[in-house]
């Protein structure tokens, strides 16, 4: 994600990060790794589900931003988005 200049690439990287986090949640939430816990033992999966939902929403917003950015600049280079620099 840090090396991509393409916005879509950055978004892709972001999704990967999120998915990585999901994997961590699910894996670390399994009783095998964390031992017995009261309740159903589904905490990891549940948070992963939330993250997926939020990621979907985030992608929708992010793609909208990308689209309007493209309309504005004609490119989708991240380094072009520096109007707010000091």
């Amino acid at each position: 994600m840090l090396t991509k200049r393409n916005l879509i690439g950055v978004l892709l990287g972001l999704e990967l990060i999120l998915n990585g986090a999901n994997l961590n949640f699910v894996a670390l939430g399994s009783p095998t790794l964390s031992g017995a816990s009261p309740g159903l033992g589904l905490d990891g999966q549940l948070i992963a589900l939330f993250v997926i939902v939020l990621a979907a929403a985030e992608v929708a917003v992010a793609l909208g931003i990308v689209l309007s950015f493209y309309h504005l600049h004609g490119v989708i280079d991240v380094d072009e988005a520096n109007e707010l620099k000091g």
């Binding site: 991509k4 620099k85 000091g86």
Partner: peptide, 18 residues
């Protein structure tokens, strides 16, 4: 002086965050 820190480069920000 501090103004210069804000470069507007998204990837640089991310790198700093990381």
């Amino acid at each position: 002086e501090l103004r210069r820190v804000q470069t507007g480069l998204l990837r640089q920000y991310l790198a700093i965050v990381v």
